[in-house]
């Protein structure tokens, strides 16, 4: 009787698998064609004409994680804007730039973008707490949007405080605030596994600034490592 139940369960699983595969074979091409059209529209609207969007992975399977290539004549800001626009198309699950087989991996400029956003505005927290002030919601939306092209990289969120008060409390507070920002980014759709946090308390004040200065209370973002698509040996002549 036990074997029979197990067999029924396995048959159900096999049936589900067959259903999934058949469903993808039947509807996949149409679904991806729709994504393709919307991605192309988003690209053109962002001014990224010339960027090719490939909806096939390196094994040739259809995917909803497109690989971008070309657009070499465009400046970095346009490329980033184009990538961000494509990434926000509903249904698309993250994008990557292909390493065109020459030179280093494409450098994404999310970190610069985020720094530019945070130059004039800061993420605000409630006094002595790690609760993000609701007034910073829109700012966090913008930060998320500019980090999205770097999905696949490790993004470090670091919290800092000024040196008033107990250093241990400051350390915990900066960690808590970095953690709160991380969760806010996850809530906005960034994948959790690429987001790391650290709290440095008041140990790293802004260079040239008095450690007491409240301007030292801040959240910094750094894109530590980007994970470009590894080219296959065929793409890189001379590779072993």
């Amino acid at each position: 009787m036990k074997t029979r139940n197990a067999l029924i369960a396995a048959a159900g699983a096999a049936l589900s698998l067959a259903l999934a595969t058949a469903g993808t074979a039947r509807n996949g091409p149409r679904f991806v064609a729709g994504l393709e059209a919307r991605a192309a529209a988003a690209r053109d609207q962002a001014g990224g004409q010339g960027v090719a969007i490939a909806f096939r992975d390196r094994y040739g399977w259809l995917t909803r994680h497109p690989i971008l290539s070309g657009g070499d004549g465009l400046d970095a800001a346009t490329r980033t804007r184009t990538a961000a626009a494509i990434a926000t198309v509903p249904g698309i699950g993250g994008i990557r730039w292909v390493n065109d087989g020459q030179g280093g991996p494409r450098v994404l400029h999310c970190q610069d973008d985020v720094e530019r956003i945070l130059e004039t505005r800061t993420i605000r927290f409630s006094e002595a707490s790690a609760r993000i002030d609701p007034a910073s919601d829109r700012l966090l939306d913008e930060v998320t949007r500019s980090l999205r092209p770097c999905v696949g990289s490790i993004i470090a969120v670091t919290g800092h405080t000024d040196d008033s008060g107990d250093p241990a409390v400051n350390l915990a507070l900066s960690q808590g605030r970095a953690e709160a920002v991380r969760w806010a980014l996850i809530a906005r759709g960034l994948p959790a596994d690429g987001l790391r946090t650290a709290g440095l308390g008041s140990t790293k004040p802004i260079a040239g600034l008095d450690p007491h200065d409240p301007a030292n209370r801040r959240i910094e973002f750094s894109v530590i490592q980007s994970a470009p698509v590894k080219p296959t040996p065929i793409d890189t002549p001379g590779a072993e």
Partner: peptide
């Protein structure tokens, strides 16, 4: 991740969860 694999994972996951809940309900005492 190819589309078919995403689909297969999500369908199997749904099946597994449904199966698990069904199993628990079916074998509930009382």
């Amino acid at each position: 991740m190819p589309l078919w694999l995403e689909m297969a994972v999500s369908v199997l996951l749904t099946y597994g969860i449904g199966f698990g809940i069904g199993w628990l309900l079916w074998n509930r005492k009382g």
